[in-house]
Design a protein around this nucleic acid. Structure first.
Lengths: 209, 209
DNA sequence: TCTTGAGCGGGACAAATGTCACGGGTCCCC
DNA sequence: GGGGACCCGTGACATTTGTCCCGCTCAAGA
């Protein structure tokens, strides 16, 4: 025979923090008779151990997760569980997210808009070795260019996130206040914005944090 | 007979902006044989007309929606489609949201965490005339007290949301810069915070915006 | 080897932000 | 008729923030 029909269902790991979403997706995928959800986790730092325990064929990962980010988990899966393909499933189609997902070795990138049917289809395509990415999003990611912020600038910006003062940030990162202000000024310049709040919005929107 | 078994399935309207979530929930509810999803909308301002057209028994509304908020839609449903009970389904269990939902005449308030089974159960309970609210959340809403911000203070805070300067806000709301600064100062005082960014976080967290 | 960029910090300055004490007006309610 | 709320505004002031200099170290690359 030229085609060997798969007898065992595809094993899927599902990482998603929102309970209702996770449950709904699991039920949905479970209804497909060639798919089986073998593990569900709600925190990023539980992904790798669950993958080691259940040996999924595909890991369906949200990005914003408590603990470790889905992107970091993807990178770790790549080395610790090489047989497992990663499909990123996220609310936000940020250019920087897509770029990081690809760099982390993800096989696909799906946004939570769009119809549910896309999901099972994407899982199957990823398993067939295809790269699953929305072409429009890919273009946006390419044209946006890479993250211009240095790691330290990202740190400072993250610390500034919820209204922390320069003094707070300096204390948190063990820096002098002068240094913090210099970094913030640099970030504001690179993002082409007028203050740290705008810079933060822009950096988030680009997926640089 | 003392019980009249319902022959017609319960008619449900579903308002949720995230495509995958909406589809998954619709499929889920559709699997229950006493429930039928008769309308799905992704924008807040489409809720009322869809309800008028399809006469649902229960409207399942997200809060953060493009166009009109689910809370405002709930209030409008109360007068325009009185037979339709409202069940709010939201990501965030903010005290202020719950309070506003109750004031808008919602029959239930559900957060998107927690298991999927809760959903169909909540729909049935709401239809039976019960008030569906997580007791812990209700306590939090009560103990938090009402929104201390005046309407104008909320306006200014909303305008300040994405890094706008005092001048920007003044121009947008047709106020003098002095007035804007006074409002912001007042908001910072009332929220017990140190600057507008912290104030914004706190107000959002409380569900006051 | 020389340059470049990242990391860190200092100092001085202008601009933005936040605070306070005041004024006026309206409306509603006791 | 007098509070008391909210609304809107001024002006003065202290603090914070953002900018632009400058300095230094270290590692990587041409």
């Amino acid at each position: 025979m030229t085609e060997t029909p798969r007898t065992e269902p595809v094993r899927v790991l599902l990482a998603e923090d929102q309970g209702m979403m996770r449950g709904a997706l699991a039920l949905l995928l479970g209804m497909e008779d060639d798919l089986e959800v073998v593990a569900q986790v709600s925190a990023g730092d539980a992904i790798v151990e669950a993958a080691l325990a259940h040996r999924p064929d595909v890991a369906l990962l949200d990005i914003e997760l408590p603990g470790m980010s889905g992107l970091d988990a993807a990178a770790e899966l790549r080395v610790r569980v090489p047989g497992c393909r990663v499909l990123i499933l996220t609310t936000f189609g940020r250019p920087g997210y897509l770029r990081r997902a690809m760099e982390a070795g993800a096989a696909g990138f799906l946004v939570k808009d769009g119809p549910v049917e896309e999901l099972a289809a994407a899982v199957r395509r990823v398993l067939a070795g295809e790269q699953v990415v929305d072409p429009a999003l890919a273009m946006a990611a390419l044209s946006a260019g890479p993250n211009p912020l240095t790691p330290r600038e990202c740190d400072v910006l993250r610390s500034a996130a919820d209204g922390a003062t320069v003094a707070d940030i300096a204390a948190e990162l063990h820096l002098s206040e002068s240094t913090v202000r210099n970094y913030l000024s640099s970030v504001i310049g690179k993002t082409g914005t007028r203050n740290r709040t705008e810079a933060l919005r822009e950096a988030r929107h680009q997926g640089w944090l």
